[in-house]
């Protein structure tokens, strides 16, 4: 099961099942971006020099309704954000819903309504879809697959450069903490939660940001599965360097930190569904943060830096308050004991 959890195991299985079998020329459309590079979405070059940005994701979440949102909202926002994080402006979406036999009609109705309301608010057209029912027990309530489509003048291929500042738009781990809490049964009624998921589309942040500072943004990602730890580890590897993060500066809500602490989970591994991580040219990093705050993202901040390295490339290091340098491991799906 750990192979689907987004950690080291997922990349291992994708590598084995797909990447090794596919000839290089078929991993992307010439001049674009595809399976050859791990990023949020794919890109196909168009005749006018712009890019068509496409992404697909299947969403399943237990429970389907949670404080702050539901699976419908998640499916719409998730693919919109993936288009955005490649530098695209989301235009259209396709969906495929599979429901478990016996799922109450009202549930489906609520989910679809909330799915459509996101599209409406964002001005994203729903240009196709599919709906199926599968026998009871063959899936967990509902799975929504969405294809997000957008257009980009310039795509952001995640390759941080030496000196880039790592900017985070908001608190991280809220969504992951809420879902975990519900799944673990650590709250009786969702209303008791002091926390809610941060699920939301990031159009209002990313479109103006890319318009104004696009050329200075060398990487952009929403820290979903595997959380911030996953994004930073991917980037350290992709850039062939080291990322150093100041522990103090990391935006984690105290409620998230304390709950995750009780589970023995580092909040940096918990998913966000409405936050962006950027690698920004140091010359404009402070300006970018200011700009983001001006767009209503009050918690935006610089948390660290990417550095080229000759040795130990791919490490993410957490600078502790006391001055230590801890290694932030890439997420794993299964727990492996390490402390003696």
């Amino acid at each position: 099961l750990s192979h689907g959890s987004g950690g080291v195991e997922t990349s291992e299985i994708v590598e084995k099942l797909f990447l090794r079998r596919l000839p290089e020329g078929l991993k992307k459309v010439a001049g674009g971006l595809g399976l050859d590079f791990p990023d949020d979405a794919a890109a196909i070059p168009m005749a006018d020099g712009r890019y068509l940005v496409v992404t697909v994701d299947a969403y399943t979440v237990n429970p389907p309704f949670f404080p702050g949102g539901d699976i419908g909202m998640l499916a719409a926002s998730g693919s919109i954000n993936d288009v955005l994080m490649l530098g695209g402006r989301p235009l259209a979406m396709l969906d495929s819903i599979i429901a478990e036999e016996g799922l109450p009609y009202e549930t489906l109705d609520r989910v679809v309504k909330s799915f459509l309301s996101v599209l409406e608010a964002e001005g994203v057209a729903l240009i196709g879809g599919d709906f199926k029912v599968m026998p009871k027990g063959q899936l967990d309530k509902i799975v929504i697959t969405t294809v997000g489509i957008g257009v980009a003048d310039r795509i952001i291929v995640d390759k941080p450069r030496h000196g880039d500042k790592i900017v985070v738009s908001d608190f991280v781990g809220d969504h992951g903490a809420v879902i975990l809490m519900l799944q673990m049964g650590d709250v009786d009624k969702p209303e008791q939660l002091q926390l809610k998921s941060d699920v939301k589309p990031l159009t209002k942040l990313m479109v103006p940001l890319v318009e104004k500072y696009g050329e200075y943004i060398h990487a952009a990602r929403d820290p979903t599965r595997g959380g911030l730890a996953m994004v930073l580890n991917d980037w350290a590897k992709a850039g062939g360097g080291v990322i150093v993060v100041e522990e103090e500066s990391l935006p984690v809500r105290p409620e998230v930190a304390s709950y995750a602490g009780m589970l023995g989970i580092d909040p940096l591994y918990l998913a966000s569904e409405g936050a962006a991580v950027l690698a920004v040219d140091p010359a404009v990093a402070e300006e970018v943060v200011k700009f983001m705050r001006g767009l209503g993202f009050q918690n935006a901040r610089v948390v660290g830096e990417f550095r080229e390295a000759r040795q130990h490339r791919g490490y993410v290091l957490l600078k502790t308050v006391a001055g230590g340098l801890r290694i932030l491991e890439p997420p794993r799906g299964d727990i492996v004991p390490r402390i003696c």
Partner: peptide
């Protein structure tokens, strides 16, 4: 302790 990067560098 190798969760410290500097210790890991030392080992290396």
């Amino acid at each position: 302790d190798l969760d410290s990067f500097r210790a890991l560098e030392d080992l290396d």
